[in-house]
Computed example of a mutant assay.
Amino acid sequence: MKIINNQNILTNKQIEAVIKLLGKDYKPRTVVVYETRLDIIKFYPLCFNFALDEFSGELEGIYDESSDAVYIFIFVQTDDGDDVHSKQLYSLHALVHELRHRFQAATNYLTNNDEKAEKDADQFATNFINRNSRRISKIMNWDEEWTVEEE
């Protein structure tokens, strides 16, 4: 697996450890982490053709089935200010959400219903993060466990 990442918010080792918890059906060919909007331009030749939605911060992540790549937009994570743990937690949630889409595509699970696929990916990511909060806290070197709160 190739990871393109500045490693200021999530390290490659942390990303690999979370994907390992999920299992081999969730492991994509490539993971690209955009910490800032500038990273979209910086990594552009290596990645997909970005659109206004990505640049404007309207998407937390994308799974591209044709290249088996997951793209995560950390700069979108501003709900709790600049708290790095919150950015990490919700970026991991976005990562797991997009990896669930990879699983859906690989297994033809809910591929004909976008609404159900989105709901499944969101619920799966929230449940996975919360069920594994102790292990994820260790991976992330957090002093306490964090959980995802859905609105």
Rank of each mutant, 00 (worst) to 15 (best):
T147P: 10
D122H: 13
A125G: 00
V32S: 08
H101T: 04
T111V: 10
E16L: 05
N127E: 11
D114Y: 08
V31L: 08
V18F: 05
N112I: 01
N12I: 00
A94T: 02
D83S: 07
L22I: 02
F73E: 00
N132T: 01
N5W: 00
H93I: 00
S133Y: 10
V70N: 08
K116M: 13
T78N: 15
Y34V: 00
Y34M: 07
L110Y: 01
I4F: 06
E54F: 06
T111H: 00
T11W: 04
C47N: 11
T111I: 10
I129Q: 09
E115V: 09
N130C: 11
I129M: 15
G61W: 04
K87M: 13
V96Q: 01
E145L: 06
K42D: 10
I129K: 03
R135K: 15
Q88Y: 04
Y90A: 02
S137M: 08
H97W: 08
F55P: 09
L22A: 00
Q77W: 01
Y63D: 07
Y63C: 05
L59E: 02
L38D: 08
E145D: 10
I129H: 11
E98P: 05
S86P: 01
V32I: 14
G57Y: 09
N6E: 15
I3K: 03
K138R: 15
Q88E: 03
V70Y: 09
I40L: 15
Y44R: 13
A17R: 06
A125M: 01
F103M: 02
D79M: 07
D79R: 05
I40V: 07
A105M: 07
D80N: 13
S137E: 03
